[in-house]
Simulated scan of single mutants.
Amino acid sequence: MIFSSYLPAWGTHWTKALGLVSAADSLNNFTIVICGPTASGKSALALAVADFFNGEIINGDSMQIYRELKVLTARSRDEETKTVTHHLYGELSIKEKCSAGAWLNLAVDAITDVRARGKLPIVCGGTGLYLKILMEGIAEVPDVPESLTEDLHQLYEREGGVAFHKRLSIVDPESASKLTISDRQRLIRAYSVVEATGRKLGYWQTKQPAGSPVEGQFVKIVLTPPRDELYQRINHRLDAMVSDGAVEEVADVLEKNLNPQLPAMKALGVPEFSRYLRGQIGLNEAIENVKSATRHFAKRQFTWFRNHMTADLVIEDFGGTKAAFSRVKALLGTLSVGS
């Protein structure tokens, strides 16, 4: 999720008011990646960079791709998407599944399109796996039959996470050792690969391509603000989301009677507000549960980016979008001079 929807809007061309000249033409072999935990200000920064460097923004968030979850995933405001072109936001229905591989194909097409029109591609999001496969490539794991996946979901439902985890530990102990009993989706994925191919998931992952499907150089900018301040932002943002119709958005989703295993049904806020709408808990409890889940999610994102992302620039404070942009501009200016 991205925070810009609940930040003050900067003027469309405020960066140009500084009297600076765009260096986009000198960055035509670069792809900018702006990432970090939820609510860290990624989208506002991406908007400023795109505005100044003649860029377009490509979604790197696994939930913002779903059309019906605009409020709950904090997608950018309509006026922002009119000012700077955005790609892969609200691209799919919540009835669809968007795997990492499917997103990669969409992202590569979007980057190619942006470059073909002489613009700078800026990938913005907090889904670490998506960003990793964009920059490094993805393992070519064979397709698993949908019927097998559905059978394994039913098996998980009948036996529970503990028993299913034990099953996986027998056929693929390496994968099982990396997963918790509650990580249903990945447990089923690992088990289904063994069942469908006769080989463990790790075998296929060792065949990962040596490089990115995107030509050129990636510039990685990671936002890692102080956790206490970030958690306060998360809490305030959720309150704003509720005022803007987040609960009603979930009510609309529930009316569709969708498969609860669809990815969008697990988006932050959907399970919690669903329990409220079904009369299982009160609204205040649901709100607090969403805040807590989001804070825990942000903590996991901090850990992921610390361990898996080697950044060209790390921004560790909440100095504001202008201050963050000035640092990014200086970095990109150096790269454009050297290119």
Rank of each mutant, 00 (worst) to 15 (best):
R237C: 15
T85N: 04
S5H: 13
T197L: 08
L155Q: 09
N257E: 15
I188Q: 00
T38V: 09
K70C: 05
I65F: 01
T303S: 11
V21F: 05
T31L: 01
V314H: 14
H13A: 02
G338Q: 14
K119N: 10
F53E: 09
S292N: 12
L332M: 11
F305P: 00
A23V: 06
Q64K: 12
F325C: 01
Q301A: 11
K95P: 02
G211M: 12
P145N: 08
K299R: 15
D113E: 11
G55H: 03
D113M: 08
T294V: 12
Q185A: 15
R186P: 00
E96D: 10
A139R: 03
M1L: 12
M265C: 10
N29T: 13
Q217I: 11
I34F: 03
A50K: 00
I181F: 09
L238Y: 11
K207F: 11
A176R: 00
K291G: 02
E79R: 03
G320H: 04
E229P: 05
S182R: 10
V270C: 05
A330Y: 13
S292D: 08
Q232D: 14
M63H: 13
I287Y: 00
A176E: 02
E195H: 12
V108S: 02
E146V: 10
V328I: 04
A330D: 14
H13L: 03
E150S: 07
A74Q: 14
P142A: 12
N59C: 12
M135S: 13
L230R: 01
R237D: 14
K322A: 12
A210C: 10
N284E: 15
Q185G: 08
Q217Y: 06
S326T: 12
R227P: 09
A139M: 07
R67T: 07
P173M: 10
W103T: 00
Y89K: 04
I2D: 12
M265D: 03
G198N: 12
L230G: 04
P213R: 05
K256V: 05
H87M: 08
S93Q: 04
I138N: 05
